[in-house]
Design a protein around this nucleic acid. Sequence first.
DNA 1: AAGCCGCCCAACCGCAGTCTC
DNA 2: CGAGACTGCGGTTGGGCGGCT
Length: 319
Amino acid sequence: MGRIPCCEKENVKRGQWTPEEDNKLSSYIAQHGTRNWRLIPKNAGLQRCGKSCRLRWTNYLRPDLKHGQFSQAEEETIMKLHAVVGNRWSLIAAQLPGRTDNDVKNHWNTKLKKKLTGMGIDPVTHKSFSHLMAEIATTLGPPQVANLTEAALGCFKDEMLHLLTKKRIDFQLQPTSSQANAMNINVPYSMSTKPEAKEETVEKIKLGISRAIQQQPDMMISNKSWETTVGATPMHVNGTCNAFTAFQFGQSAFGEEDGSPWNQSMCSTAGDQLGHLKLEDENGEDSQGEKEIRNGSSIFTTDSILWDLPSDDLMNPMV
DNA sequence: AAGCCGCCCAACCGCAGTCTC
DNA sequence: CGAGACTGCGGTTGGGCGGCT
């Protein structure tokens, strides 16, 4: 036999808390603590579920909570930790005194996610989109790249176009120097918001990819590792040179005068990252099967990047 | 001025692990 | 030892509010 239920579902109030309810809960907890949430609403004279009381206390009434805006330092902490632990909001909040998991989650979903997307960074993996596409291209042959790109565009396009159509979005946003260093990114500093350019831009990307694939049919998976540098950071990536092929679309298909965010983002990131590519000898020291991004001052190493699809999954165009 | 739309965030929902009887 | 409540957590919702047309 188990415990009795925490509350009668029918007889509890729901929705916004009133100041009076807050006072009752706060003063009761100040006297008796938070030992038994099932008894708290009953003893405090509240028609609330214990769970509701617990949430109200932990997310709002606790005296040690901060209620103001998130500082730059807090935002940076969230972004860095999120890159390592993902959506473990309670873990992230534990590193931010006075912030709750709910606060962090809301701030991430409403602000930081969009900020990263607007900077050309995938908020799930914390990699630049061009970097992700390069990774994909190193794993797949052209037909699969095309399929996966189509799928990825479907997801990212919506988010990006949403940002583009918002007039209030500040596309001049730049990452702090530490963020940029940490993420090894190049940021689209100025973005066009011309609505007519949106669908056209997406179509250009698709076209560029298919052209690149068609023009370089011999650039198939070669099992060679390649090396690139991002800023002063050397990268050693197992895979193939067809990553380079796939991402030449940034320059070849668009030309440098296209001011669309897609183009600028993809061109600059892909160009900078892949422009320094050089193939290594198969027997070279760096072709040992380990993918590594060296950046001693950053948490954004390959080991800490959680999103790493197995190649089997990548072979499925629906992923 | 009014209606519409999108954003923000408090609150709820539901699941999983833990605890209690 | 098992049933079921408790707790913690991440995902989702919806109402209030402000900006835009």
